[in-house]
Amino acid sequence: MTLLITVFAACVTTVLWYKKAPDDSMRLGFLCLMYWGASLMWMCDAIFEYKEMGAEFFTPEVSDMINDGFLGLSVVALGMIIWLAYLIIKDPKGIVKKMLTR
């Protein structure tokens, strides 16, 4: 579930990045790569888990699914917080600088 939610987040941000490209003033490329990196890592984890559990991997308990779903959403939220912090620190449009010097 966590992997699935992160992959969806990666796909959505990639589409948004592509729509805005070549303008990357919102640093969406950074968010894309972060989600894709996490997705690939969880995919690797899932492959190892599948190797261990077999077909049981595809039929998780409802409580596990809910927990993993919450985790997935929290991961997406954390990714966005990291991206926002990066955006404000880098300040590619100079908005924060302008606000502070006004």
Binding site: T2, M34, Y35, A38, L78, I82
Partner: peptide, 14 residues
């Protein structure tokens, strides 16, 4: 860098 740092940070949270 972005893929490795971002992925590691999100996995650390997990």
């Amino acid at each position: 860098n972005n893929m490795l740092w971002g992925g590691s940070a999100l996995l650390a949270f997990e």
